[in-house]
Design a binder for these strands. Sequence first.
DNA 1: AAAGGCATCTAACATCGTTAGGGGGATCGG
DNA 2: CCGATCCCCCTAACGATGTTAGATGCCTTT
Lengths: 243, 243
Amino acid sequence: MGTRHKTAHAGVTREDLADAALRLLERDGAKGLSMRKVAAEVGVQAASLYWHVRDKEELLDLACDALWADFDAPPPHTTDPAGPHSPGGTDDWRPQVAVLARRLRTHLLTRTNAARVLVGRFAPGPRWLDRMESLIATLRTAGFDGRDAADATYLLGTWVQGFVLHESVPMSAAEQRGASPSEATALARRELEELSGERYPNVVALAGDIAGPDMDTRFEFGLARLLDGLEPLRATATPKQAE
Amino acid sequence: MGTRHKTAHAGVTREDLADAALRLLERDGAKGLSMRKVAAEVGVQAASLYWHVRDKEELLDLACDALWADFDAPPPHTTDPAGPHSPGGTDDWRPQVAVLARRLRTHLLTRTNAARVLVGRFAPGPRWLDRMESLIATLRTAGFDGRDAADATYLLGTWVQGFVLHESVPMSAAEQRGASPSEATALARRELEELSGERYPNVVALAGDIAGPDMDTRFEFGLARLLDGLEPLRATATPKQAE
DNA sequence: AAAGGCATCTAACATCGTTAGGGGGATCGG
DNA sequence: CCGATCCCCCTAACGATGTTAGATGCCTTT
């Protein structure tokens, strides 16, 4: 049987399975992922997977961790080449957090199908903890107390994931096998405009604003709002005194 | 009224299917929903469903809309029974939005299983549009311009859904068949504390803040941050310029 | 009474997750 | 060198799933 995929019968690792699962998920979507296909992808029979893995669930957990494999966080704040304690140094927490949020979004966005399945699963592996540690470090040195830093981290994480989840769904459920993205938004807008102007005056009037703006600007809007909302919580420099 | 359950063949409606699907989804979770079970629930053979519905997908779309059946939005701002049209009345947009956000959360939370499957599907039916119209109306009369109101609506919606999605997942993936919630958080906290204090100094130090606070306060934290971030966008009273 | 559509049925297919039990090849103790 | 042991994979099968095809009866209209 010449079905050796990688090295001839070198043995399959759990990482192989996770990678294969991720690959299939991304290529064929949620229903394209079956044990048999994962097995075929790594060059074995379906039942053989159960030697490495107890469940399909466990396989998904593995994939969930592998999702973060190639996500390279910016180095935590403590390794910042600039001044470690400089008052100006703690003010750039905004761009730092923003950059992390944007990277998180694009990371999930380029793995839409996988993210859709894996979001809300959250077996936080070491790679995810790295992100968390980095973010919290940034926030604390920026002047947030521990509790606020933890809550803000959670807030950012949940928002980005919720955002991507929406963003990655075809705007109209019926358009999944349909038109180009620009056509889809135009169509969505038209649908909104054709609603009852009596019952939905604002929705109709703002149809262009609701269906119109591209997701990038929408994301930036939300991000700016979050950062603005967090800002007043910072203890500027030492316990009291302002700047 | 006509709640004949499965008396002979009284005829099945699409609403019946959606309700049955929602019921099964909530009772048995995602994998408890099969065509055959939905059919049995309404007293019919599996194949008969395909007369009412093209796909399982379409059934889920139906259920997605039915999810909002018993969500009663607070009346839009214009029908506020208390202060009719006081100029200070536009300042209570915060509690209005907050109330809507909290209701949205609890609504999704009491339908966790269904929400998990249906989130990100979003065939926005009329009921969802009602919510949207109400929210946008509130924001606009509070002084937000159209574009900001639309973006803020999107922001709030995505955040609440992302939040609930996280909230409704068992804190540790392994604990789904395990302990009580309080035990789970205690265990999660202990797990965080046992991490390498070298690699994750902040995570370890704040283990209590990360795993500790209950979700209600976390939600309120995020909500307050969002509202704070939106506040400066309001055009306060002075009609200096539109757009 | 005949016709026709509506709503459901039975039967079957391919595919899915998962289990049971068997076997071949490497490694190690003697 | 031999056998034992473990690792890793195999074939075969079970029940459940989504979905289709074709037949059957009920209800309404003619």
